[in-house]
Structures are given as structure tokens and as C-alpha cells.
Computed example of a mutant assay.
Amino acid sequence: MPDGDTALSARVFENISNIPPDTWETLAGPDNPFVGYPFLLALEETGCASNETGWLPQHVVVEEANGNIIAVAPCYLKSHSQGEYVFDHGWAHAWERAGGRYYPKMQVAAPFSPVGGPRLLAGSGPNSDDARLTLLRALETICQKLELSSVHVTFATERDYDIMSLAGWIQRVGRQFHWHNRDYETFEDFLAALTSRKRKMIRKERRQVDEQGITVHALSGDDIKSHHWDAFYQFYVDTYDRKWGYPYLTREFFEAAQDRMGERIVLVMADMDGLPVAGALNLRGTSALYGRNWGCLGDFRFLHFEACYYKAIEFAIDNGLSTVEAGTQGPHKIQRGYEPVQTYSGHFIPNEGFRDAVERFCREEEREVEWEMENYAEHLPYRQED
């Protein structure tokens, strides 16, 4: 075991079902559904996270001599860089041009989900950070024993990020756009916090959705029926076929997720003339709503903003949630009330020369992200308080 600690050992599990669910959930905590046992199990049971899709589960567990598990990491052996959203294609090409083999690599992540959250799962006890550091050392050891190019912990919390810094891992930042609930009681309260111009813009966009004869509503739990999933999956596949070419999630996954964590799902559906035309999938944490997948069968003016942004904000206000995280990309989200936030990743690369090159890249990228964050902050749509 790393650091000469003979009281601890690490094991790798190819199926999350072989790890006690209660233990995993205790270490992961209740806040983020994307590292929760039900979500990860549904991905494995329905073949979404598998060797065939290039996401072979290799969950790392650290346990005491008596078998007590003190830390786990949702880990995957990856044969590509798809579905991660922290892009390292350039690193892969550079290493392979130099004669190295970049794949397979280890990825500690919530598959197919650009959602920040805990990755080094060790609970919140007084020794939890020590357990996280031990988990990192275990990942390093496994990487080197298997002669892999690298380990990547993506969309981590700031706490995990600090532990990775302590361990000497390369640090990388990115940015997303999140909406923050400033104790609004209604959507109109939120609009009142905006400048007059942006307030009028949002009202106009929502009105134009209504004028197209479209109704938009949010469903959760038992209110989501099989026919809703049939329609949403059609939207999802159609969007991927047009934009990205390969849908990561199967129809079976959505039903399995519904069965295992239906209370965490918020499915926004848009109907026209009694028929569904678009949908947006969200998962609900204890304090945040996480927007994930969107699909639409036609070109409806402003419907994407209504279903993905405004309905999410409305749901968060109505349910006392503090944050809406709307996924990747999107400077256009700023004028709709979403603010820039940093994302955090850490990377372990055994080869010194390759590590130094990636480190230089990340430091240059960090300066660019900082400049972007400052620039975006100057264009927020909120009224300035006197």
C-alpha cells in the first residue's frame, strides 16, 4: 500500500454491485446523485458503462485490515476520451506522436456527466482527508502497475482539488455557468433582480414559447410514465444523431434510473397539440438541480431556453434549491442569469517529460480561464446595487 501503510489495502471491483450499497452511499454523501450508487449501478446494469462502450468499471476501494471500507472512487478504464467533457485529445495525440500509448487510461468520474461533485469518496469524518490522500496513492500505484499513461479525476470538488494538489497531481481548471438562488420566492423575484433590458428579453422569450402553442411542465417521481421516456429517448437520440453522432445512454437506462432514483429525476416535457415535441432531463441533489440532456423534434423559437433554463430556475425556486447547474458550454447563459464558476480536475502522469508538458499546458490554460471568468463577470445581467 502507498506510503508504507500496512494497515490499509486497496482493491479494484469491476462491478459496483459487489460493493455494499450502504457503504458507498455513506462515503458519497447525499448531495450529488451522479456519484450515488443508484445512478452508477443503472449505468452498469444497462450496458452504458462497460468494456464495449469504452467505460470499463474499475472502482477502487481502500479498506482497513478488518475489511472496513474507508474510501471509494468511481473509476473506469477508458479506451477513448469521449463522454468526459474535460478534453485531453491533444494530450493523447501528442503522447502517441512521441511513441507512447495513451489508452487505456484511468478515469475517476461520473460517466457522461459534466457535473461537479465529490470523486474521492470518503465521507466527512475527522480522518476523511487522510483517506482521500490514501485513495490517490492507491490510484497512482494501480496506474504504474498496469503501465497506464495516466489517471484523471474530473469535475471534482474544491476539497478534492486541494487534496490532489497536496499529492502533487497536475491541477486543471475549467468553467461552467450556474444559476444561484438569492432567496427568491418566485420567478418574478428573480426577474426583478435583473436589468430592465434583460428582464424584458426573458419575458419576451417565454411569451413566444406560449404563442407557438407549446406548454412546458416538469415531472418527477411516479408522475413520469413509460410513454414519457419513450418520447424523451426519441428526442435524445435525434439530437445526438444530428450533433454528436453517438448517444451514450440506452432506452433501458432511463427506465432503470426511474426505478432506482425516480425521486431524483426532474423531466421537463414540452407539448404541442397534445403531443410531446421536446424534453430536458435534470437530476436533483439536496441543494442543486443538475441539467443534463435535451432533445427536440423541431425548431421552436426559444424552447431550448424555456425548457432547459427558465423551467429549471422556476423549479429550483419552488423547491428551495440554491443552485442550477446547466452543464457545459454556453456564454449565452450569462444574459439569462447564469454566472461563471470554476471547475476542477486533477491528473497523474508517471512519465516526467510528458507530465511537465501537460503541466505547462494547464498553467497557460488556467490564465485563459481566469481572463474569461473576469470578462464574463463584467457582463452579468443583474442590477447594480447602490
Rank of each mutant, 00 (worst) to 15 (best):
P2T: 15
G4T: 11
N18A: 08
W24E: 11
E25W: 00
L27K: 10
Y37C: 05
F39A: 03
E45N: 14
A49G: 11
S50E: 05
S50P: 10
E52P: 15
E52I: 15
L56W: 13
P57E: 11
I70Y: 09
A71N: 14
A71L: 07
A71C: 12
L77T: 14
K78C: 15
K78I: 15
S79K: 08
S81V: 08
Q82E: 15
F87Q: 15
H89R: 06
H89W: 15
W91S: 12
W95V: 12
R97Y: 06
G100V: 14
Y102G: 11
Y102L: 08
Y103V: 06
M106A: 05
Q107N: 05
F112M: 09
V115I: 15
R119F: 09
R119D: 10
L121K: 07
A122V: 11
A122L: 11
G123W: 09
G123P: 13
S128T: 10
R132E: 12
T134V: 08
T134E: 09
L136E: 12
A138I: 07
L139G: 09
T141W: 07
I142P: 05
C143S: 12
Q144E: 14
L148K: 06
S150D: 13
H152N: 10
A156I: 13
D160H: 07
S165Q: 14
G168K: 07
W169D: 12
G174T: 01
F177H: 08
W179K: 00
H180M: 02
D183V: 04
Y184M: 00
E188I: 07
E188Y: 02
D189I: 06
F190H: 08
F190E: 04
F190L: 04
R197N: 11
R199W: 03
R199C: 05
I202M: 07
R207C: 01
V216R: 01
H217W: 03
D223R: 03
K225Q: 13
S226E: 14
H227T: 02
H228D: 07
Y233C: 03
F235A: 04
Y240F: 09
K243L: 05
W244K: 00
Y248N: 02
L249T: 05
F254D: 00
E255V: 12
A256D: 04
A257P: 03
M261F: 00
M261E: 04
G262N: 00
G262I: 05
L267A: 00
V268P: 03
D271R: 01
D271E: 03
G274M: 09
L275F: 05
L281A: 00
N282A: 01
T286I: 00
T286V: 02
D299Y: 02
F302E: 02
F305G: 04
A307D: 03
Y309H: 15
Y309I: 07
I313M: 15
A316D: 12
A316F: 02
A326H: 02
T328K: 04
Q329A: 13
P331F: 04
I334V: 08
R336V: 13
E339K: 07
E339F: 03
P350L: 10
G353I: 14
V369G: 09
W371L: 07
E372H: 11
E372Q: 13
N375D: 15
A377F: 02
H379D: 06
P381E: 11
E385P: 08
